[in-house]
């Protein structure tokens, strides 16, 4: 038997007076995870702004942006600084979740399963009005795709980015041809990530009428009961079951 980790639930009466009796919050992200996400947002935005003018040097907006960030040299400095920040973030994330947070790797709920493929299909059918909305557990297939997409992207961007940052050092270890390959991978992957974040991720967490203007989980780390029931019904049921068990045990 796998020991289920408790799902954290906090009542608002503990936090701010008693006027909201009965409203409960569900812990979605720890403070550690929130800070990681904030650093990710900051470095990602800076990298996109300072990187895209070099991917599209002939676009009219390219010199405009370079002018706004303070010249080409400043652009390079900013891009390198933000890039190093992202590399450190990536290393921290992997280290933390491998060695500090000792949950078994295979039992993590972020691992993709067959259900996700079914849910993917069911979602399309749902949009077409031919099925019910799939019931998600802790992470929906969209969130899993977001996470692993970002994970794969981070690996690609950090490795090729370091090669591009020190091309002449890299040439001592790898053939010149690979330095060139790094350019292709770095810029193409960057474009993919940018498009994905701005179109898909922002739709899911900002623009979608369900959460508009935004899902506040990225600031507070909490989900409301209503949101929880709607977006993660399976996890909600699990949390309720655990709460009942706890109260039964303690009494």
């Amino acid at each position: 038997m796998v020991k289920q980790r408790l799902i954290e639930v906090s009542g608002s009466q503990k936090l701010a007076g008693d006027n909201k009796m009965g409203e409960v919050f569900f812990k979605r992200f720890t403070f550690n995870q929130l800070v990681q996400h904030w650093i990710m947002i900051g470095s990602f935005m800076l990298l996109v702004v300072t990187g895209m003018p070099v991917k599209f040097p002939d676009a009219w907006w390219s010199p405009v942006i370079i002018g706004l960030v303070g010249g080409f040299e400043m652009r390079t400095t900013l891009h390198h600084a933000a890039g190093i920040g992202m590399v450190i973030l990536g290393i921290y994330h992997v280290t933390f979740h491998l060695f500090v947070d000792k949950e078994s790797l295979l039992e993590r709920k972020i691992m993709p399963t067959l259900t996700d493929a079914k849910d993917f299909w069911q979602t399309i059918m749902f949009y077409l009005g031919k099925a019910e909305q799939p019931k998600y557990g802790r992470y929906s297939w969209k969130e899993k795709f977001d996470y692993w997409g970002a994970f794969w992207g981070m690996v690609m961007m950090c490795v090729t980015g370091l090669v591009l940052m020190f091309p002449f050092i890299a040439m001592n270890f790898i053939p010149f041809a690979y330095v060139h390959l790094a350019t292709i991978i770095h810029t193409d992957e960057a474009l993919l990530a940018t498009l994905f974040i701005f179109i898909v991720h922002w739709w899911n967490v900002h623009y979608s009428p369900e959460v508009f203007p935004m899902s506040k989980a990225w600031l507070t780390g909490n989900l409301s009961e209503e949101q929880m029931k709607h977006e993660h019904p399976l996890e909600y049921e699990e949390a309720m079951r655990q709460m009942q068990e706890n109260t039964a045990n303690s009494s």
């Binding site: 399309i124 390959l181 292709i184 193409d188 993919l192 898909v200 739709w203």
Partner: peptide, 27 residues
């Protein structure tokens, strides 16, 4: 490799953005 990587990213970007942007529109 350069040839295949470029093709790989062309397909990957088109399909991922295509599928997900399609989902957003459907949604």
């Amino acid at each position: 490799l350069a040839y295949w990587i470029a093709i790989f990213f062309k397909i990957l970007t088109t399909s991922v953005i295509g599928i997900f942007a399609g989902m957003v529109i459907l949604d």
